[in-house]
Each structure stands twice: as structure tokens, then as C-alpha cells.
Simulated assay, not measured.
Amino acid sequence: MKKKQSATIYDVASRVGVSLATVSRVVNGNTNVRESTKRKVLAAIDELGYHPNAVARGLASKKTTTIGVVMPDVTDMYYSELARGIDDVANMYHYDVLLTNTDEDPVRETMAVNNLATKQVDGIIFMGNELDREVLNTIASVDAPVVLAGFLTSDGSLPSVNIDYVAAIRESTKALIRNGHQRVALVIGPLTHAINKQYRLKGYQDALEEMGIDYDESLVFTSHQDYAAGMQVAERVTAAKATAAITYDDEVALGIMNYMIDKGVKVPDDFEVVTSNNTKFAIVTRPAVTSISQPKYDIGAVAMRMLTKLMNNEILEDTQITLPHTIERRGTTKNDLEIKM
């Protein structure tokens, strides 16, 4: 069967009897076209089924109206909610989104950024927990603005949108201490990552100091970001005689909670759990998990809005945006859990 040939810009121009430049102006929304001519061009586009070639338009305008989004795990609810905010705002500003998954592997992250650069994306939003030196160097070499969503570099060298991780962990830790816990475990990702060492751990240490409790590094645990890892770290948390835990990931929190329940430990009477991402995992389980609530959709949406400004060569008034967080009290903490600054 002979393949149907797509209509071209030449076909549209010929049908209406105008120049290629006139058709191009109509397609690109240029207002410098007579209304009657515009109607004829749009009618011809509809009749012929003409679809503008995005690549060709990008070469001509030096814009592809495409942005790249680098995600560590497309199946993770936290990142998918951020991506929804990005996509909605991208659509509002008529940008297409190219999504790439990296499994938080620096080699794949470097490849992802390079691949997006070869596709001439107009900008990139990067999600994850850390940027290693090679990835940072690659980002610096790309001729496109980059915004971080849901994490930040140690030196604030790239625009980012986050919550105040120090304050969120400090508030949660102090609340658990007020509930009578002298040994609160902190379960986070690798301490080589700035978001863990400089922000989450700092919030935890600040809370201990304010509440007059000595810091004990044996109560700080690193864990992979999944349910099985939570089950595994729970054994070490128990061995450390902790009676409460704050985790950086909802699946990890569920692993810890279920381990305790399997061992006959009553949650929250004998062991309290607070998580950090407030995804559906924290809500649908029983008991539902008390969580730091991040405005995930808004983080993605604001990151995309920042990127649109950078792609238009606008100056950002603030390159480090901090959005407000709350604490959602649920069934893994006692009813009298009191959150104070």
C-alpha cells in the first residue's frame, strides 16, 4: 500500500496563494497577518491536514518548544506528582515534555542530560537526591537552563524549588521527643548527599540540641528508597533501642511499620513513625502514616514556571524557592503529637 504523503507548508501556501512566510507567521501565532488571510490559511491547514514540523520550526526559531525532565524513578509516587505539576504548566505555555528515567545512576544521569541536549531541548528540570561532579559538569556544558525540583545542591549553584528540609525534620523530631521518646531514629539516604547531611541530618541534630538530648550517631541510619530496605533497616532500628523513627521515604516508613507490627510491637503505642513524602502509600495503609506534607504538585509547577522565565532570558528574583510544608497527623503517632516550631 502506498504511504499517504503528508501535506507540507508549500501545499498550504499554494492553496491560499500566499507566501511561505505568511503561512509560517500564522502557524507561529504572529499577529502581523490580516485576519481574512489568517482565516484562509487556517482553513487550508484544516482541509489539507497539515501538521507543522516541530524540528524544522525549532531550527528556524532556535527553539524546539520542548523541555526535558530527568527523573530517578518514574514509578515513584513522589516524583510522579512533581512531574504532573511540571507537565500541566508546560502544557499551559505550549511546551512538550521529554521524560527520561535514570534509576539515580550518575552515568545514566550524564547520558540523559547529553541526550536531551542533542535533541535541542529549550530547558531541563532535574529531580533526584544528588548531583555528582560529572553530572554537574555536563549540566554546565549544556546550552539550556536547568532547574532542580525537590532537592538542591550544597552551594545553591542551580535554581531549585523545595521545602525547608531542616525545619521539617526539626519539627517532627521535637514532636516525637515531646511524646516521651528519648531515642528517635533518623532514616535517610546516603550522607554523601547534601540533602541528607546538610539538611535532614542538621534538622535532626538541631532538634536534639534544642530539646537537651545528646546526639547519638548510632540512631542515624541510611537506607535505599524502597519497602524491602525499610524492613531491613527496621531490624537495626530495633537493635538500637529506638522507640520512634523519622524516615525520608514513604515505602521505607511502611517497611519499618510493618516490621514492628510483625514483631508484635504496637504502633503507635510502643513505636511511632513519621515519614516525609505524604504520597498515597502513607494514606491508604492502616494505620495511615503521619507525614511531613510537601506541596509536590506545586514544587513541579513552580519549577516549570521558573524554567519558562529562564528560557525567555528573564532574570529570576529568587533562584532558591522554598514552599511551605505541613505535618499531617495520622495513625502512626499518638493523638497528642504536638507540632511546634
Rank of each mutant, 00 (worst) to 15 (best):
K4D: 08
A7K: 11
V12R: 03
S14G: 09
L20P: 14
A21K: 15
N30Y: 08
T31N: 14
N32R: 15
S36C: 04
T37V: 11
K40E: 13
K40C: 09
V41G: 05
L42M: 15
A44N: 04
P52E: 08
A54T: 15
V55H: 10
R57V: 05
T64C: 13
T65Y: 07
I67G: 08
G68K: 06
M71R: 04
P72Q: 08
D76C: 00
Y78N: 06
S80T: 14
L82C: 10
Y93N: 14
Y95M: 11
L98S: 10
L99F: 11
T100Q: 10
N101K: 04
A112N: 14
N114S: 13
K119P: 08
L131E: 11
R133M: 07
N137Y: 07
A140Y: 12
S141Q: 14
A144C: 12
F151M: 01
T153H: 08
L158Q: 00
V161R: 03
Y165R: 06
Y165C: 06
V166E: 02
A168W: 02
E171V: 11
A175L: 06
I177F: 01
N179L: 15
Q182M: 06
G189S: 10
P190S: 14
P190W: 06
L191C: 03
T192S: 14
A194L: 02
I195R: 00
I195T: 00
Q198K: 12
E210F: 00
M211A: 12
G212V: 02
G212N: 15
I213E: 03
Y215E: 10
L219A: 12
V220S: 05
V220K: 02
V220H: 02
V220F: 05
F221V: 09
Q225D: 09
A228R: 12
G230C: 03
G230N: 00
E235L: 04
R236L: 11
K241S: 04
K241G: 03
A245F: 02
M260K: 15
D262R: 12
D262L: 08
V265F: 05
P268V: 07
P268I: 11
F271L: 04
F271C: 09
E272V: 13
S276G: 02
S276F: 15
R286Q: 03
P287Q: 03
V289K: 01
T290M: 02
I292N: 06
K296T: 12
R305T: 04
M306T: 07
I315F: 11
R329E: 00
T332Y: 13
T332S: 06
N335P: 10
N335M: 10
L337H: 07
I339D: 14
